[in-house]
Simulated scan of single mutants.
Amino acid sequence: MDNWDDMRVFLAVARMESLSAAAPLTKMDPATLGRRIARLECSLGAALFVKSPQGYALTDLGERLRDRAADAETQFALAVEESRGGAAALTGQIRIGAPDGVANFLLPQVCAALQRDNPDLEMQVLALPRVVNLSRREADMAITVSPPAAGQLIVQKITDYQLHLAMRADAPPAKTLDDLRGRPVVGYIPDMIFDKELDYLGALGAGGVQLASNSVAVQLQMIRAAGVGIVHDFALPFAPELRRVLTDQLALTRTFYLVRHRSARQSDRLTQVAAAISAGLVAEVARLERIARLTDAPVV
Rank of each mutant, 00 (worst) to 15 (best):
T247C: 10
R290P: 01
Y188M: 13
G187T: 03
V132P: 00
D160I: 06
F256G: 01
E289I: 01
Q93I: 15
R39P: 09
A89H: 12
P190A: 13
D178F: 06
R95D: 00
I277K: 01
N118R: 07
G55C: 01
A70G: 02
N214S: 12
D248M: 03
A149P: 06
A206V: 13
A77F: 06
L281V: 13
R254T: 02
L201A: 13
A79F: 08
L288T: 05
D233C: 11
V231N: 05
R269C: 07
Q75N: 13
D179Y: 00
T295C: 10
P237R: 11
R95M: 08
D233Q: 09
V80Q: 15
E81G: 05
E284H: 05
D195W: 05
V273L: 06
I223R: 02
R260W: 06
D170H: 13
R254P: 04
D5Y: 15
V245C: 05
A103Y: 04
Q266E: 11
A174H: 06
V50S: 13
A103E: 04
P237I: 07
I158P: 02
E122P: 06
P184F: 12
L165A: 06
L44N: 05
A235Y: 02
G280R: 01
L40E: 01
G229R: 00
R293F: 14
Q266C: 09
Q75F: 11
A113Q: 12
S52N: 05
D2E: 14
L220F: 14
D29G: 14
C111S: 13
R287Y: 10
R183D: 08
D67A: 15
V102G: 04
G205Y: 05
V209E: 01
S83R: 14
L252G: 09
R168A: 05
G205P: 09
D179T: 03
T91K: 10
V273N: 08
V131L: 09
E73Q: 11
A98C: 10
L236N: 07
V145E: 05
G202L: 04
D191V: 01
Q249F: 07
P148I: 04
T295Q: 11
Q266F: 09
K27N: 15
F234D: 05
Q93V: 15
A22M: 05
A12T: 07
K196V: 10
P99E: 07
D29T: 09
Q221A: 11
D140I: 03
T255S: 10
I291C: 02
H164D: 11
D160L: 03
A212R: 04
R243H: 03
R137V: 12
G202K: 03
P190I: 01
L19A: 13
R293Q: 14
